[in-house]
């Protein structure tokens, strides 16, 4: 094989290697979110209610405890699982039940789900249940919102702000 042919072949192969990298670092483009769609994220970290009622200890019971442990109330450690549902225009689009974290199930319960919805006006009905001691949902929020294309709507929970929040 002639030296010139070898050189040309090598240059072409190096060019093919570079072209392969150059092409597949940007092509084909990836459509993460469909055009004219918005993204709804349900994300919350929440302590469920205690699974049982707190109880006032009697004087006799307190007497049996070491002096440094005589808390007047005795509360169960375990927390309730939480359940969240999101209806959009009457259809349940997001629904997740989450157990409390930790070996004693006394930690927070985490929920994360996402859904793509067409941009436009929608009716949101968000419900959260965080107590195993009562029936039905403990929190509910109904909103009618207009979502822009590519907008991200985050559904969260903040007890200090009145419960279910939208941002």
């Amino acid at each position: 094989m002639s030296r010139a042919f070898s050189w040309i072949g090598q240059i072409l192969l190096y060019a093919a290697f570079a072209a392969f990298i150059g092409v597949f670092t940007r092509w084909p483009s990836y459509q993460h979110l469909q055009p004219d769609h918005a993204l709804v994220k349900l994300s919350l970290i929440h302590h469920g209610q205690r699974v049982g009622e707190c109880r006032q200890l009697s004087a006799e019971e307190l007497e049996k405890l070491p002096p440094n442990m005589r808390a007047p109330m005795s509360c169960p450690r375990e927390r309730s699982p939480i359940l969240v549902e999101v209806d959009i225009d009457g259809d349940t689009v997001l629904r997740q039940a989450a157990q409390p974290s930790g070996l004693s199930r006394d930690g927070v319960a985490s929920v994360y789900q996402r859904a793509e919805v067409p941009a436009g006006v929608h009716r949101f009905d968000i419900r959260l249940r965080d107590s195993a001691r009562t029936e039905g949902f403990d929190y509910e929020r109904i909103e009618v919102l207009e979502l822009r294309p590519a907008q991200i709507l985050v559904i969260d929970f903040n007890a200090g702000k009145g419960g279910i929040t939208l941002q």
Binding site: F24, R26, W27, Y30, H32, L33, A38, A150, I152
Partner: peptide, 19 residues
């Protein structure tokens, strides 16, 4: 973070796991 990325020129060799 208030806007979701739509069409992306993605590096398929390194980020293929996301799609």
């Amino acid at each position: 973070l208030s806007v979701a990325p739509g069409e992306l020129a993605i590096d398929w060799l390194l980020l293929f796991i996301h799609p």
